[in-house]
């Protein structure tokens, strides 16, 4: 018996599953930092999110008669990222609701992996933030805030109410994660370790993380903030490295990815400075997720041997997502 199929006859060997599990692996330092910083409650929240995300996906697979999709690793990533976006002392049932919304509405209602428009973990987080604003911004009282002498709040919430507080920030504490906030936001070093790993393994490219961070730093400086504080505070690092880089919800071209990242940085800083919320990374990423089809449309690669991007006006878009 010989096999006959059209070319190419070889494959790079890197599968989607492999890439997804690489991301899970890269999130392990962040998980470790979260448990080190917030203790057992952090591990508990992660466990709750994992269990409820996987169960939700399994149930929906069953209900819709699909093959089991748990092995692709994407639900595990969503669970981890959602948990990393929650306070450690959030009531467990809220974490369950967030997970069900993230997987059920954020991903599966669009048709599952690859079809969703918004980052599922952030859909879950923002749903919780709007539904339970108090619980979602209540931080453990005994954790230092990152500002000398203050506990029980985050740097950004202090800065939102008292902009002068920024002069008392302890930058070293922030970098290693000795500050208050959501589980995975607080260890810049741990996040960077994971991100560098993904870059080296070729799982992600530099375009999105660098453009998000660079743009946030530049606009922070332009708006009179301290760029380093803005980079280290809140979910910016986690968002730039692990959530804006989500394949499914980011642009398809390098140029598009840079535009996408730069806009996330800008919107984040605008929300932090002028918005009612102290933190804006989630909203910035979700907003830009919505623009991805448009970005794809206008950053289309130039075909070899053609002078310019093809004008899409000549082509009638028949509901094909680009």
């Amino acid at each position: 018996m010989i096999v006959v199929s059209p070319s190419p006859h070889i494959h790079s060997g890197k599968s989607s599953d492999f890439l997804m599990w690489q991301v899970v692996l890269a999130l392990m330092p962040v998980l470790a930092a979260a448990v080190w910083n917030f203790g057992i409650p952090a591990a508990f929240i992660v466990g709750v999110c994992l269990l409820s995300c996987l169960v939700t996906e399994w149930v929906i697979d069953k209900l819709t008669g699909r093959a089991n999709t748990l092995r692709d690793g994407s639900a595990v990533i969503t669970a981890l990222l959602l948990a990393f976006n929650l306070p450690s002392i959030l009531p467990w049932w809220m974490a369950v609701i967030g997970s069900v919304v993230a997987i059920g509405i954020g991903k599966m209602s669009f048709g599952g992996l690859g079809c969703n428009i918004w980052n599922p973990a952030l859909v879950g987080r923002v749903f919780l933030l709007i539904s339970f604003p108090a619980a979602m911004t209540t931080w453990p009282v005994d954790i230092p805030s990152g500002i000398d002498g203050m506990t029980g709040a985050t740097v950004l919430s202090y800065m939102n109410s008292a902009p002068d507080a920024v002069s008392h920030v302890n930058m070293l504490d922030m970098a290693v994660g000795k500050m208050n906030g959501s589980l995975g936001e607080t260890g810049a070093v741990a996040i960077l370790i994971g991100a560098v790993y993904l870059l080296i393994r070729g799982v992600i490219t530099w375009h999105i993380p660098v453009s998000v961070l660079l743009s946030a730093a530049i606009f922070s400086w332009l708006f009179g903030g301290n760029p380093l504080v803005d980079l280290l505070a809140g979910g910016l690092m986690l968002g730039a490295c692990f959530m804006a880089t989500d394949y499914v919800t980011s642009p398809m071209t390098r140029l598009g990815q840079v535009i996408f990242g730069a806009c996330i940085g800008l919107i984040t800083i605008i929300i932090r400075r002028y918005g009612a919320y102290p933190e804006g990374v989630s909203f910035a990423i979700l907003l830009m997720n919505s623009f991805v089809p448009l970005i794809n449309r206008y950053t289309r690669p130039v075909v070899f041997g053609q002078r310019e991007r093809r004008s899409m006006d000549k082509v009638t878009g028949k509901g094909v997502r680009s």
């Binding site: 006859h9 599968s15 890439l19 992996l113 398809m252 075909v303």
Partner: peptide, 28 residues
């Protein structure tokens, strides 16, 4: 090494676009 693996859903990773030497969008 002779068999193709089962097709999975497109995860929009954009690799096909970045490797295309002709500037096409294979996924599309």
């Amino acid at each position: 090494q002779s068999h193709r693996r089962a097709e999975q859903p497109c995860i929009r990773c954009s690799r096909c676009v970045s490797v295309c030497a002709m500037g096409l969008e294979p996924y599309l």
